[in-house]
Nucleic acid binder design. Sequence first.
DNA 1: CAGACGATTGCCT
DNA 2: GGCAATCGTCTGT
Length: 215
Amino acid sequence: MNTGQVLPASFYERPPQAVARSLLGAVLVRSEGGRRMSGLIVEAEAYHGQTDLACHARHGLTTRTQVMFGPPGKAYVYFTYGNHWMLNAVCEPEGMASAVLVRAIRALEGLEWIAENRPRPPSCRSTRPGQELRGWTDGPGKLCQALKINGALNGADLSDPAGGLWIEKGESIPDEQVIIGPRVGIQSVPEPWLSKPWRYRVNPGYLAEILPEEG
DNA sequence: CAGACGATTGCCT
DNA sequence: GGCAATCGTCTGT
């Protein structure tokens, strides 16, 4: 199995904001039965500990959040809205609960396998450069469906390919191509947490430049 | 144990 | 842009 440079657990042993920024351009990889599929991480959000009222850890250690309180570099996968799985990377040393939600990827390898898991929507038929894959894996629930990520992978070691889910070093995204803003989908959370600029994404125009077009 | 709500998505007007 | 789907998690009784 050809693997690039797998990001070590120490990569995640930092504040989630730094990890979220650094994960832009990295490659999320999934393997199963000898097959491999992957995508470039283009959007991520930081959730920072028990004081962050948008973070699941705000209620302390519970059955659901125990992985978040564990060592860094593990996958925190949870189920929500009755339909969707969400993938997070646990950050900071053991005992501190923080994580980075992977919100969107740009499919790279194993496009056929990904399509088996999640058919490409009509919006993918766009002929505009950089828009060919729009709507396919551009959401936290969508990318989990696309890469077959579910509760069975909760707690998986993202620094060990043996677990079937890991992250490799990828493109380096310059600061001027990173769009920073408030997190989404947390509208009932009070200030100042509601407005914390902890959402990071790659400028779509820049993405179209660095990745070969796909038709 | 009942009730509220959610780190979303897809379909409808 | 609005809104229903759908069920696990958490809170309060």
